[in-house]
Write a protein that binds this DNA or RNA. Structure first.
Lengths: 151, 151
DNA sequence: ATCGCTGCAAAAATTTTGCAGGTAA
DNA sequence: TTACCTGCAAAATTTTTGCAGCGAT
């Protein structure tokens, strides 16, 4: 298996890589931002901004700062936004370049999330783009159902 | 081509069919509800509740009523909720049974929406369901890009 | 020394809820 | 009649913004 440069043993991106990406975007590396990245890094599921705050040791930063940071990280392409049909935005770290993106299977009762490895062909994406004259086409695909525990 | 029972020439569901579905759910057919269904019926794109209100002739009903009606219609499976990553819920009439569902291609700049006919195989959906022990699995797939006018 | 970032607080926007009266069935 | 619905108003959430001071570079 090929070694994963810049990733730890669990396949997560090292914090230094993340801060480098931030710095490269001409942004400052601050305590709150590092804390936010740490939280995102240690969770493999999309989190709401409130959950990010709650996951920090004792009010390490303000909720408004998290909102601002998420906007920034989203613009820099470091974070992806998800909507699970409950009116709350959730964010998750974008895998490093070359890594395939993944999708989610969400329980409609308890909101439990399972990650789905497979992603259907990019060919469909390209065909849709050219057929409609769109550029930079991406997609979001989420599955919803009832999980074993809730059945 | 096979005739479309219960649909008008544009392929939209007749209002009477919609109200029948409501009635069948042991609900009352009221002025506001008919107005809401009329608006949904005459738009082929998902609308926010505010847009639904604005599309009515002169404040025909209260915004709160629209929120309540959407919850109801969603529960009855007559309406589907969409999240286009801007924090506002949008709703669209669900096609009649047997009709294939469709997806959307949304411009990230101007929010212009194009309907996408094709839907990738339900086989993937079934495989994901059985592999994870989930029941009643559905999916939501949206494409995002930059439309011709915004490029 | 900048210029950006943060915390705090207030505001804005979206969505939910309580209640008294009205209306479909 | 009776249970459900509606409008109005207030409240609860989520998200955005202004501003003075702090801090990374």
């Amino acid at each position: 298996m090929k070694a994963r440069a810049h990733s730890d043993s669990a396949g997560r991106q090292a914090l230094s890589v993340l801060t480098d990406r931030l710095r490269h975007g001409a942004r400052k590396i601050t305590g709150p931002r590092k804390a936010i990245l740490e939280v995102l890094r240690s969770h493999s599921h999309p989190l709401t901004n409130k959950q990010v705050l709650a996951a920090m040791p004792t009010g390490q930063c303000d909720l408004a700062t998290i909102y601002r940071a998420m906007h920034l990280l989203e613009k820099l392409g470091m974070v992806k936004r998800y909507d699970f049909a409950d009116g709350k935005a959730r964010f998750e770290l974008v895998p490093q370049e070359g890594d395939s993106h993944h999708h989610h299977l969400v329980c409609m009762r308890c909101a439990h999330v399972v990650e789905i490895e497979e992603c259907f062909s990019g060919a469909i994406e390209r065909r849709i783009a050219s057929r409609n004259g769109f550029k930079e086409v991406t997609h979001k695909l989420e599955f919803f159902g009832i999980c074993p525990a809730c059945q």
